[in-house]
């Protein structure tokens, strides 16, 4: 592999997503009906940071992850990886992107080939990228050590002979084997026991330091996201509703959805139980999202302006920007609480 070193310097964002959109056709639905799985998502990931993405099930987190690797072709939008547009003449190819960005999936069992010893699964990536068989298996041994598994003991095993945590370590090893610069972790620890989850999270942190990795960490578990992320992006119904540094988001959430999400965490204090769930019901259908603000149907502060005008996320200036797509944050919006909250 040629040197995939940092080209644009630390100030240049590693990945810029601009207005990504993916609408799936609805089978058997009304003609032209689409599920707006990802509907105009923009964000940047800086070098060496961990960007957490949170949101309810079905809000488009996983679709977004797959769009970033072009595992699903986006309908529109642009990806810029370290200054190079992806999939365009003057930029880098999708394959070149896939060499630098890897993904770890939620289901540790189905993301390993059941008929392959895990060392072969790990060696597959380097082999595809032109390493010889011998080199690939040496790399596989090395990364197995790095994720804390003994190569002689675990390498020859088949996935069904490993525990969930061990399988997920193998998946992480597989992702690291081709020396990516960024790893997308799509609910990578969600299926693990709490104790194993903590081990894997610590492993991820250690690996990030050792290999100068950048993480995109997708999860529905707020405490996990808080533990591992530098910045957090909150998604609702295919759109970004809030984006900011992790402490800002958790201590001073700006969007009512984020507030509700944070309030829905189980309390650690038995005297301070949640009596009523802050969010009730299912999110509205992404086939026909509400007009204006998508969250207004479940928002206690919704007013007429929320139904009429779609709030904009606003512009982020640097990595410390904390922005939210809510009319209450925009004094010019005409929302009655706009000035009061700010």
């Amino acid at each position: 592999m040629e040197n995939l070193s940092d080209r644009g310097g630390p100030a240049q964002p590693l990945l810029i997503a601009k207005d990504l959109r993916k609408h799936f056709k609805v089978k058997g639905g009304a003609p032209g009906a689409t599920v707006r799985a990802v509907d105009g998502v923009s964000f940047t990931i800086h070098k060496g940071e961990t960007l957490g993405i949170v949101g309810e099930s079905g809000c488009g987190k996983s679709t977004l992850a797959r769009l970033l690797l072009h595992l699903i072709e986006p309908d529109s939008g642009e990806l810029v990886f370290d200054g190079d547009p992806v999939g365009e003449m003057r930029g880098i190819s999708v394959n070149a992107l896939r060499r630098q960005v890897q993904m770890v999936f939620q289901d540790s069992a189905s993301s390993l080939n059941p008929r392959m010893p895990v060392r072969d699964s790990i060696a597959f990536g380097p082999h595809v990228h032109g390493k010889t068989k011998a080199e690939s298996s040496r790399i596989a041994r090395d990364v197995l050590v790095k994720v804390g598994l003994k190569p002689d003991l675990f390498g020859p095993r088949y996935p069904h002979e490993l525990s969930g945590g061990q399988k997920q370590r193998v998946n992480i090893a597989r992702a690291l084997a081709i020396e990516p610069r960024m790893v997308i972790l799509d609910e990578a620890v969600s299926a693990l026991d709490k104790s194993v989850e903590a081990q894997v999270l610590n492993l991820l942190r250690a690996l990030k330091e050792n290999f100068n990795l950048t993480y995109l960490f997708i999860s529905h578990d707020l405490s996990v996201v808080r533990y591992i992320s530098d910045r957090v992006l909150v998604m609702y119904l295919g759109a970004v509703v809030e984006l900011g540094p992790v402490n800002e988001i958790f201590s001073r959430p700006k969007h009512p959805y984020t507030v509700a999400l944070l309030a829905s965490r189980p309390s650690m204090d038995p005297a301070n139980r949640i009596e009523e769930p802050p969010l009730t019901g299912d999110p509205p259908s992404p086939i026909d999202p509400p007009s204006g603000c998508r969250f207004r149907t479940r928002c206690q502060f919704a007013e007429t302006v929320c139904a009429e005008v779609q709030p904009v996320l606003g512009q982020w200036n640097d990595r410390d920007s904390h922005i939210a797509a809510c009319h209450m944050r925009d004094p010019a919006s005409g929302h009655s609480r706009a000035t009061e909250v700010n």
Binding site: R66, L69, L71, N95, R98, R99, Q102, M103, F105, D107, S110, S111, L112, N113, S121, F124, G125, V128, H129, N171, R174, I178
Partner: peptide, 10 residues
């Protein structure tokens, strides 16, 4: 997922 993972490997 492992097929998708293989595709993601390039």
């Amino acid at each position: 997922d492992f097929v998708e993972a293989a595709r993601a490997t390039g």
